[in-house]
Structures are given as structure tokens and as C-alpha cells.
Design a protein around this nucleic acid. Structure first.
Lengths: 221, 221
DNA sequence: GAGATATTTTAGATTTGTCTAAAAATATTT
DNA sequence: AAATATTTTTAGACAAATCTAAAATATCTC
């Protein structure tokens, strides 16, 4: 695996995340995600195509090659391990870890990362509940269901939270919801799509549609 | 404190280290230290002068301003804390930590570094025995004596080792010398400047001039 | 399906940090 | 102190990553 610049890694990572939803990614989507201009994206896409990290025909959008995917998973592994380190060892709160990890993730020393992984006890998910790829780039992609899609009266476990702002953290802490919390939906209100939740041995409470859309669960447990 | 580029930080740090010996630093010295060309050094010196990080008149060499010194101490603090982390927590050997810390030192998030410091228990020296500046840039500059200057029959404690290669580490491990080892010189041989050392409760042994020149001690203890 | 609108690419400029080669300043030697 | 050698600076070029403005292409709408 060759070495890529910070900028190249950021483009690759952003494409990886955007591909999840769509199949191919467009110039404007990527420019928006990276807070840059469409012309800059085109420039970089030409470079990454030459390096065989993605498939790209002018005006047709792009998607990562196998090699590009591997690079993305490497960046994501480093990012999430550092997030775990920051939260678990340095006692950063949940919403503070992302920004620092954005810098740490670009230090590509295999031994550093593998030893960090070992030091942390090979964690499987980061503080937001997102899975951490292992040293071979393998990632636990077991399906997550958005809380808005969870059927009534079905116990599920909170597995991750997609928004990473301090505002959502404050709200979740207040509602006593965190990664691993087991809950079920008691009632859904069609008017505003709010819902009433129940956590074992606690009184039921209500959350908004906006919040529910950012909470993901796995069935059972 | 403003933010400086990786390259700027590396120049500042190198000047800081070179100033120790000399008073001012020359263009060629710095070019050699940083494995770059004299012309590149001149370019950077002009930039750093404008930013008031150093004093510089063409052809007259340069030295750091107060602000430049603060920047250097910040970089050194980060470098040495990460070295400590790598050795102590991730079980890197002594000669492996420097290279990785060269990258980590440029991540300038104050909270990250202060929390790392706390997590490590506020260590006072890095794995080579060099002092770690505190959060205010204060550094323990108590004098060290080179082993070649230690008088005969005087007990002293190894405080640091200036060479950081794996070769010297191998040799020191074999001789059972590490930071904190208490020793005394039993005999000096003028012929080759080798010397016979004694560590408490061990038989005396000989070390070469080359090795002695890289070992520094503090008196007593 | 033709014109209007939106998206994407190209062309050319800018910034940062580097380089080589030549010129200028300083140091050394005889 | 003049000639020579060394060091340092300037001048001009280049690569990476970005930008604006204009041109090319694609998509939408009627």
C-alpha cells in the first residue's frame, strides 16, 4: 500500500462515505461534503484516477476502485481507533473526539496503529457506535435500523448515533440514551412523527422525529 | 499563540536545538540539519522573520525570538510526550519512538496534549532522558555532565543518552545501562579514552570513548 | 426536441515549500 | 591587500492543492 497525501486521503474517505447511500458520487456532492469547489474536485479526481484509486469518466461521477476502498478503510480504521483512545483514555466527551481524530487519522504508521489497537483491547466500535475496521480492513457491516423504522413493541439496542454535535449529545445524556441502551417503542404519533420510548425499569418518555432519525439500533438483546 | 505549518515548526525546532551549542545558527548548519538546501533555508528565514519568530539580518545568521522559543518549546513538549506515550503505553522500544513522534508532534490541539500529559501522569523526562516542557513551556534545564567529564570515583546517575539509534540501544542493553542507572568511573585509559565503569553490585566493565561521549549523567544519588 | 438551467470541466492564477544555477557577500590564504 | 574559496542570497522554475471565471456538457421543462 502506497502513501497518500492528507488531501488525497480526505477525498477518498469522503467518497467512501457518500457511496454508501448512492452508488456513484457526483462532483458537487463531494465539493459540498469537503467544503471545497467543484473545480478542485475535478482536479483531484483526475489525479486519483491516474493512481487507480477510483473509476471516473468525465461528467459521469465516480466510485472507488478496490484499492481506493482499501485506502478508505485504512483511514477510517485510524480515525475510529483514535476516537476510541480519546474518549476512553483521555476522557474526551463524545462530541469532541471527531475533530482531533481528523488530524490523527493521517499518520500512517502501521506499527503505531496496530499497537494502539492492541493497547485499546481491540475495540469493535468507536464512541459513536460505528464499527472499527480490523488490521486487514475487515469491517463489521451488520445492518442497522433507524429508530424511525423500528416496529412497535420490539426491543432493540442502540448501536450508533449519526449526528455528532454537542447538541445531540446533551439531549441524549438528558434522556439517558447511549450506545448499548436497550429500548422499545411504545407509541408513534403520526402528527409530528414523535414517538414514546421505554427503557427497562424507567418511565416512558417522548422523543422528536429529528432525534429518532439520528439513532440507529440493532434488533434484540 | 498562532498556528504554524509543519515545515515552519520543523525549522523552528531545529534552530532551537542548534542554538544550544552556538549562539546563532547559520544557513548551512540548518540546511544540513534539515537535509535541505541553503536556498530553502533563506526563503524560510525571510518568512519567519516577518512572522517575528526570529531575529535575522542577511548573512548574519539567526536566533529565535521569545515568541519563536515558545513555539519551539511547544513542539518539543508534544514530541516528548508522544515519545513517552509510545514507549510506556504502546511498548515501542527506545529507538523507534523518535520517528513516529516526528509526525505526532505537529498536531497542535492544546486540549489533546494537556489531557495526554495528565493521562501519562505528568512525566518529567522522555524515554531518552530529555526533559519534557510543562504546559507553560517551562523546562527542567538542570545541567548534565558528559560521562567523559565525570571525575574518577564519583557516583552519578545516567540522565540521558544523546544518540538515538538502535545500535546504541543494543549496546546499552547489553551493558545493562539505562536512564537512572547509578555508576562510577573506576579507571580511565589515556591510550584510547576508554574507561572502566562500576555499577553497584556488578563486576566492573569497559566502555569505549564513542559510547561515553553519548552518555550524560547527573551527580550523586 | 429546443431552449433554459444546472452541473462539470478547462484555463489560467495563486500560495506554500521546494529546487538549481548564478550572483553577491563574506572569509581565508598567501 | 589581492586573489581565491566559501557561504549566503537572489532569480527563476516546479509540484501540490487550491481558487475564479469561462466554456463544455448534461438535464430539465414546456
Amino acid at each position: 500500500m502506497l502513501n497518500y497525501s492528507t488531501s488525497e486521503e480526505n477525498y477518498i474517505k469522503a467518497i467512501f462515505h457518500l457511496q454508501k447511500q448512492d452508488g456513484t458520487v457526483t462532483t458537487n456532492e463531494l465539493a459540498h461534503e469537503l467544503k471545497t469547489r467543484a473545480a478542485s474536485v475535478t482536479d483531484m479526481m483526475k489525479k486519483l484516477k491516474i493512481k487507480k484509486l477510483l473509476h471516473y469518466q468525465p461528467y459521469q461521477g465516480f466510485r472507488l476502485s478496490n484499492e481506493g476502498n482499501k485506502v478508505a478503510l485504512g483511514v477510517i480504521r485510524r480515525h475510529r481507533l483514535w476516537e476510541y483512545f480519546l474518549a476512553e483514555k483521555l476522557k474526551f466527551t463524545w462530541d469532541e473526539v471527531h475533530e482531533v481524530a481528523e488530524d490523527l487519522e493521517h499518520i500512517t504508521n502501521k506499527k503505531l496503529i496496530d499497537k494502539l489497537d492492541e493497547f485499546l483491547g481491540f475495540p469493535r466500535v468507536d464512541p459513536h457506535g460505528d464499527p472499527i475496521p480490523d488490521a486487514n480492513g475487515k469491517i463489521d457491516s451488520s445492518k442497522k435500523t433507524c429508530l424511525t423504522d423500528l416496529p412497535l413493541h420490539t426491543v432493540a439496542t442502540v448501536s450508533n448515533v449519526s449526528d455528532q454535535s454537542s447538541q445531540i449529545l446533551e439531549l441524549l445524556q438528558h434522556k439517558k440514551i447511549s450506545i448499548g441502551t436497550k429500548l422499545e417503542i411504545k407509541k408513534k404519533f403520526d402528527f409530528d412523527n414523535s414517538m414514546e420510548l421505554r427503557v427497562a425499569r424507567h418511565p416512558a418518555f417522548t422523543i422528536s422525529r429529528e432525534l429518532a432519525e439520528n439513532i440507529f439500533v440493532k434488533y434484540g438483546k
